[in-house]
Design a protein around this nucleic acid. Sequence first.
DNA 1: TTAATTATTTGATTTATATCACATTTAATA
DNA 2: TATTAAATGTGATATAAATCAAATAATTAA
Lengths: 226, 226
Amino acid sequence: MQNCETCIIRSKAVNTLNPKELRFLMESCAETTYNPRESIIKEGMLSSHIAYLKSGLAMVSKKGVKGVDQILKIVQPGNYLGLQTILFEKVNQFSVTALDKCVVCFIDNLSFKELISRNNQFANELLLFLCREELTYFERFVNIHQKQIAGRIADIILFFSEKIYANALTFEMPLSRGDIAALVCTTRESVTRAIKDLSEIKTIRVTGRKFEILDLARLKKINQSG
Amino acid sequence: MQNCETCIIRSKAVNTLNPKELRFLMESCAETTYNPRESIIKEGMLSSHIAYLKSGLAMVSKKGVKGVDQILKIVQPGNYLGLQTILFEKVNQFSVTALDKCVVCFIDNLSFKELISRNNQFANELLLFLCREELTYFERFVNIHQKQIAGRIADIILFFSEKIYANALTFEMPLSRGDIAALVCTTRESVTRAIKDLSEIKTIRVTGRKFEILDLARLKKINQSG
DNA sequence: TTAATTATTTGATTTATATCACATTTAATA
DNA sequence: TATTAAATGTGATATAAATCAAATAATTAA
């Protein structure tokens, strides 16, 4: 059993719970640690719990018609993972894989639903969470097709720099070239070439998985212009 | 003021309201009728209401980096339109346009939020609605890149036949060739060509906007195989 | 350390689709 | 009904990116 009362990365939703509800949550909560590349949620498997990422970095992916996995998003600590599956209790509609060492809290579906119907502030926060997520997908959907590969690569480099590594200009990319391809809807080879192109015009410097942004303004421009 | 009490296309969420709450909803509700191609919600404009599609067909679209509008989805009666904007009260993140003659109910944001916090069954139904929507987007996102144009066109023909026109094999397409392009992420010309290709192998017959499915099995196969 | 995988890079080639330019049909308006 | 405008179709061409194939580089296992 976890101590949700002292958890420092509690979700906004959990923050709305009263002491009694929080104890109820604690009693139906279990914490697990994952190594990099370990599967946290497996698409097609029976789902019984909602996952909450306490620490580490994870990715959400889903199989398409060709059987190839596409990465839907990178998840940071403080986010729910299987929220959308509350509906389809039966099977997971996507996979979640650890990129770092990850600490994940699991809450069983039933208890989670119980909290939703008990506390409407809790439900409200979840609503906001889902709305925000959906708008992010809209953005992503609309842009991924209107940009060519260099633009999309610029986009994810900026994403990691800004969103994941707090505006660091140098960072270690947790994704392989193949992962990046699955994230921006292209092939491994095209990712390599796009990175090479961006390097040749001195916008970035890349050695293996170490990424360094040399010309932030230009990178942003490439991201915008596609 | 509308009569929500007798509305036959009430959302599952609204069905959870008690008589008092329903009256509250009615008092903050206004109904408007739109002609085909009329704008119901305009991206970038200040948003103050949540829209609910009572009848007709509408499309949700959003501008990408290139300034080109992409169609995110086709909305059928019984669905909320601006739900995701509850968060960003300021501006609409997408546009909604009528395809048919549409009847739309508007509820002001504040009253809607009030209902969420008053009735947790209401909030719960909205949660389920958003979850279902998100899973649909996942599906769409993952597949649109793994299929080539013929497969995507097959997909939307099947979508209209099955989902919009109750499995009718003959139907009037409410979208122009350009709209279809915006929906499946391609160009007007490529849509024309794909339709021509499908027609030549006698899978469909198309005259103007009249679509007829001749070989359903084959169309489904093309949809699956990409 | 060496061998054996696995990941990445690079070049050559192919292909699906975008783009351009123009013809034709259909719908809207005077 | 004639005139204009908008939507659609069609061919030629260009191009971004996929695919194929093979060489390096980097990990992992023995």
